[in-house]
Each structure stands twice: as structure tokens, then as C-alpha cells.
């Protein structure tokens, strides 16, 4: 079973709760930090890193001896990664989405692909948790290929927990696709509720069962829970704001150490999720 943690708005507690769920689970967990632009779950899981694997993506190169300058490669590229300067194609690898369209479109077979680095997957172990995180190369703006590579590490594992990137665009959708259940972490505030609604729409389109965790639940903003009630969205957990939680966070301590009993509540939530999740 794969449980993905997402939010829409950043900073609501995806990492806090994905880590808390992983630490509280009775079963072995494969933890995938797919927030590859800034993976931070390792601060809390503290795995012993045993491997680093470079991940590459294919990008086009043109054999100028074979190229006739017809421009079909540039025309087929949806991402403006190839432009024609007269008869000469200019390629911008940083804009390429590795679709391979240009090499298919080239009638002269002048376009071939080379592999360039996109990021690194680090792996390690801590107690019952097999840990993997992706770290996107600096300057790279396209995270989905690396997120997909991180997700492959969960193949065949019985319980996978995914820490997704924030937002509701390609990186988040890539992280969630194929998950059996999504936990949307939110906080009672107008901005978070706005983004929660967008995240709910996204997860519904993906067809993944989901529930909500309300972080800092004691904030006076009843609209969040009203929304969940109205939309019949299960609220799996409510955790109030506590200064000690923030202090613990800043020193790499999981929230389950701060709230006694939270670990048991999470175990209950996991069994609820198991019943709700699609298999």
C-alpha cells in the first residue's frame, strides 16, 4: 500500500506528518522523499545513508553532418527547446522534457540522445524504515523525471510512504500518481483552505481516496472543518499548535515525541486508511 502526503500550500506539515506516520507504523516502511527540490525528511528520520545514485535523463544532440536543416525537430518541440537559426538547430537542454519527439521527427536520423544528470537518489536505513530521497541538481527546474525514479524504489514494498512536493502542479501529481491513498495536510487558515480545495480537486481527478490532517487545529478558523464536513472528507487527525512542536522541529525531533498519544492516534489512522485505500 502506498500513502502519499500532499498539501497544496507549502509549510502545512507534509514532512512532519509523513515522518510521524513512518515512525509510528508497526510494519516495515519504505519512505520516499519526493520533495526533490528541498528534501528535508532526513533531518527527522536520520537514516544512515549507504548509497548515492546519479539519475540521468535523455536529451537530444544533432549530428551536423546528417542534418539538412529542415527544422522538423524544432517544429515538433512543445517546449521551445530547439530553435532554428537559418538551417542550424540550436538546442537548449535546460528546456527539454525528454519526450524524444525530435529524434522521431527527424527524417535524416540526425538527432540522437545523450544522458545528462538530473539529480541524485540517496538511500539508507533507520530501524524499520528503508529511506530514499531525491535531490534535484541545482539549476534544474524539471523535477518529475527524478520523482519517478525515486518512486521506483518503492516497487514491491508492502507499505510505502511518500512525502510529496507542495503545490498541485506536475511535481505533486507525479508524486501522487498510483498511490492508494493520499493524506492532505492542511492548517486552519484562508490560504491553506484555498489550496486544500485545489488539492482536493486534483486528487479527485487522480481517483485516489483521501483524508485530511489538520495541523495547528486550535486556530480559530472553523471554515476548514466546515468544508471537510460539507464535502464528506474524513478528518484523520487534528493536532493543535504547540511551541514545543516548533522547537522540536527546529532540532530535528519528530512531532510524535512532543504529543504523547499521537503515535497511537496515527496507528489508528493507518488502519482507517488501510480500509479506505484502493488495492
Amino acid at each position: 500500500m502506498t500513502i502519499a502526503f500532499a498539501s497544496g500550500k507549502g509549510g502545512t506539515g507534509k514532512t512532519t506528518f509523513s515522518v510521524a506516520f513512518a515512525l509510528s507504523a508497526d510494519d516495515n516502511v519504505t519512505f520516499l522523499d519526493c520533495d526533490v527540490e528541498e528534501p528535508d525528511s532526513h533531518f527527522f528520520i536520520k537514516p544512515e545513508i549507504t548509497g548515492n545514485e546519479k539519475i540521468t535523463v535523455p536529451v537530444p544532440v544533432v549530428d551536423s553532418g546528417k542534418c539538412t536543416g529542415c527544422g522538423r525537430c524544432a517544429k515538433v518541440c512543445r517546449f521551445n527547446a530547439i530553435t532554428m537559426l537559418g538551417k542550424k538547430p540550436l538546442i537548449f537542454h535546460e528546456l527539454c522534457h525528454s519526450c524524444g519527439g525530435c529524434s522521431i521527427a527527424c527524417p535524416e536520423k540526425a538527432v540522437s540522445e545523450i544522458q545528462i544528470g538530473t539529480g541524485v537518489i540517496s538511500s539508507g536505513i533507520r530501524d524499520h524504515i528503508s529511506f530514499y530521497q531525491g535531490l534535484l541538481d541545482i539549476g534544474n527546474t524539471k523535477s518529475p523525471p527524478l520523482i519517478k525514479a525515486v518512486k521506483k524504489k518503492g516497487d514491491g514494498a508492502s507499505l510505502v510512504i511518500i512525502d510529496s512536493p507542495p503545490g498541485t502542479s506536475c511535481p505533486m501529481v507525479t508524486a501522487l500518481k498510483g498511490a492508494d491513498y493520499t493524506v492532505l495536510v492542511t492548517e486552519p487558515a484562508p490560504f491553506a483552505l484555498n489550496d486544500l480545495k485545489i488539492a482536493v480537486e486534483t486528487v479527485r481527478i487522480l481517483g485516489i481516496p483521501f483524508g485530511v490532517v489538520i495541523n495547528k487545529s486550535d486556530h480559530p478558523f472553523p471554515q476548514t472543518e466546515e468544508y471537510c464536513r460539507k464535502e464528506a472528507i474524513p478528518v484523520l487527525l487534528k493536532v493543535p499548535e504547540k511551541r514545543a512542536a516548533a522547537e522540536g522541529y527546529s532540532s530535528g525531533e519528530s512531532i510524535i515525541k512532543i504529543f504523547p498519544g499521537l503515535g497511537d492516534e496515527i496507528k489508528k489512522a493507518i488502519s482507517t486508511i488501510k480500509k479506505e485505500a484502493v488495492r
Binding site: 521551445n80 540550436l90 537548449f92 528546456l95
Partner: peptide
Amino acid sequence: NAAQGAGIQAASNAA
């Protein structure tokens, strides 16, 4: 209104 690569295409057009 291009999603990305506006400068590249514009430069190509200018050329």
C-alpha cells in the same frame, strides 16, 4: 504567452 522558451523563439524570429 509562451509557457517557456519565449526568449529563444523571439530571438529566432528576430534573426
